[in-house]
Design a protein around this nucleic acid. Structure first.
Length: 581
DNA sequence: CTTCTGCAGAAGAGCGTGTTACGACACGC
């Protein structure tokens, strides 16, 4: 973990502990805000911590947080955190992640029933201690018990690659229900986050009862959590919670905006609304007449509600695509208007055949690429250091180049490039000699082993590879696997600057288990002037469809079409391949 | 805890749903 992330985690921990002991909610959210700032900060916090003025110049960091940051940099912890860690059992923080348990309840369970972690919670349920507490009825206890069991069996977040196909199939099924005129997913899924907490579906229908019934009866429903007139929630067999909200057609924009989030973006929008004597809620933007009763309940007509665009316009803000609603920039900043879209992509430059560990032949890969309308496809099998992936020896590679050339000769409508995914060894050297690499049209260089080396070594390793004159693309630069391993933690700014200097592209590997570069790295890479590639690393035909995840990640990082080499026409691409330095 | 307006003190997003006890509270987004 980088220093900034490490410290951000400490601030998150502090916020959770403060909540449990019942601190003022605004103090808690101020601490959470600092955690977010630290995560997004593009300079190493330890390098500026000594300068109190510079720290406090960051919006959201004041006296209190500056002191905490400085203490942490000096001794790896800070007073307020130490004190709360002493007072509060650490297992309680974990309980907050269990659905239905919030800070108030967890605090009570601890003070009134000696609950300190999952095990003691389970014991307190089983021996009936919980039932003795006020406001702990049979239903509440049963819900906690089920949520606890569910949490033991499932990860608390679902990978994008699982959630999106599931959401799409639910949308398709529910569209068949009589009376449904529209249904779409919102939430972190629509924003293209790499993992999803739960799936939010937003529907317009003439028969809400029928839709709620169809939704809660869905064959893969494990449990119905809520079932109202306008809202229902289920736990799906795949381990995800799915929420359905039914809204009026003329308020879809307000609802979509609200349920898409992020929460922080919503707060900014609502603050903006308030500063203009209006109020924004999930029913739209309303005039603020000082009456506390929600305006839609008093028959007040909204200023804007039907579309998101209308609401942004009424707030005199630029439209923000869902992927850019993370509150990372000033909300009045105009997002790029040429943010990359799927239709921009004309090539896939990282794919595998049966020669290494893919399941398709060269010809079959070409068919898949043609079907998607690509003008260029690069075949990039593994190098010898990946014996488990059947990496190609030099001899096999040379023969493979000829085989690729033969297939290429049979296709006039697509340019098929002979390439490699050559291993970046732990010291930054490559797994093939230069005289072999120089015979290839395209070289993707990727780290596969030694993914736990320290940050400095990782930076040097990637800089060396990015600076190699024969390397065109650094494939999945960190080697991370989401939810499984963190991968390399290089100083991405330094790597990206080297890549920019040598006109080497950094890949967004679109495999949803990787998404590597991740959105934050994409942003750093772009700010450093590096070019980006979006490749699927396809090993099967279905993998070509991973492209969408790569696009979402690119958009979250602010990637515009011209910056992405896969949007270039074939001749531009070929010029670049030949003149890389 | 931080920011902002005015230098000390206020303000900080807003709502539906479920549970429990019939108005209040906690939760989650």
């Amino acid at each position: 973990m980088t220093q900034n992330q490490e410290l951000a985690t400490r601030f998150e921990e502090l916020a959770a502990l403060m909540e449990i002991v019942g601190a003022n909610t605004f103090r808690v959210s101020a601490i959470r805000k600092v955690a977010r700032i630290l995560e997004d900060l593009d300079v190493d916090i330890t390098t500026i911590a000594h300068d109190t003025k510079e720290l406090k110049a960051i919006d959201g960091i004041g006296d209190g947080s500056a002191t905490k940051i400085q203490q942490w940099c000096e001794r790896g912890s800070f007073d307020d955190l130490d004190q709360l860690r002493e007072d509060v059992p650490e297992g309680l923080i974990d309980l907050l992640s269990i659905s239905g348990l919030g800070p108030k309840t967890v605090g009570r369970l601890w003070r009134e029933a000696d609950v300190t972690d999952r095990a003691t919670l389970k014991a307190a349920i089983d021996d009936g201690r919980l039932a003795n507490l006020p406001r702990m009825g049979a239903k509440t206890i049963a819900n906690i018990n089920e949520a606890l069991e569910f949490a033991q069996q499932h990860a608390d977040r679902t990978p994008l690659g699982v959630a999106m196909p599931l959401a799409e199939s639910l949308v398709e099924q529910l569209l068949q229900v009589k009376g449904v005129s529209s249904i779409q997913y919102a939430g972190s899924l629509r924003r293209g986050c790499e993992t999803i907490g739960d799936i939010d579906l937003l529907a317009v229908t003439e028969h809400p009862e029928a839709l709620v019934a169809a939704f809660t009866d869905e064959a893969h429903t494990l449990k119905v959590l809520a079932r109202g007139d306008t809202k229902a929630s289920i736990r799906h067999a795949l381990g995800v919670q799915v929420d359905l909200r039914i809204v009026e057609a003329d308020a879809v924009g307000g609802a979509l905006l609200y349920f898409t989030g992020s929460k922080e973006h919503n707060v900014l929008l609502r603050e903006r609304a308030r500063s203009r004597t209006t109020r924004l809620n999930e029913y739209g933007l309303f005039p603020d007449d000082g009456d506390d009763t929600p305006p839609q309940q008093r028959g007040i007509a909204p200023i804007a509600a039907a579309t998101e665009d209308e609401i942004y316009t009424a707030l005199e803000l630029p439209f923000h695509p869902p992927e850019l609603r993370e509150a990372r920039d000033d909300i009045t900043n105009e997002p790029a208007d040429d943010l990359i879209v799927r239709a921009d992509i004309g090539s896939d430059l990282h794919t595998h055949t049966t020669a290494s560990d893919g399941v398709l032949s060269i010809e079959e890969l070409v068919d898949e690429a043609r079907r998607r309308g690509y003008h260029t496809l690069a075949i990039t099998d593994h190098s010898p250091s990946q014996p488990q992936a059947n990496g190609l020896s030099i001899d096999r590679l040379l023969k493979h180049i000829k085989a690729i050339a033969q297939v290429a000769a049979n296709h006039q409508d697509i340019c098929v490039l002979a390439g490699t995914e050559v291993d970046i060894l732990s010291d930054g050297r490559l797994d093939y000699p230069d005289d072999v690499l120089s015979q290839l049209d395209l070289v993707v260089a990727s780290p596969h082993a030694a993914l736990r080396q320290d940050s400095n070594a990782a930076t040097e390793r990637l800089v060396r590879a990015a600076s190699h004159p024969l390397v065109h693309i650094i494939g999945h630069p960190t080697g991370r696997m989401i939810g499984r391993r963190p991968g390399l933690e290089p100083n991405m700014k330094v790597v990206a600057e080297a890549a920019a200097d040598h006109r080497t592209a950094l890949e967004i590997n679109a495999n949803p288990r990787r998404l590597d570069l991740g959105d934050k790295h994409v942003r750093i890479a772009i700010e450093s002037g590096a070019m980006i590639a979006i490749n699927t690393d396809a090993h099967t035909a279905e993998h070509f469809d991973f492209l969408r995840y790569g696009i979402l990640t690119g958009r979250r990082g602010g990637l515009t079409a011209p910056r992405c080499i896969n949007t270039w026409a074939n001749d531009t691409l070929m010029d670049w391949l030949k003149t890389s330095v």
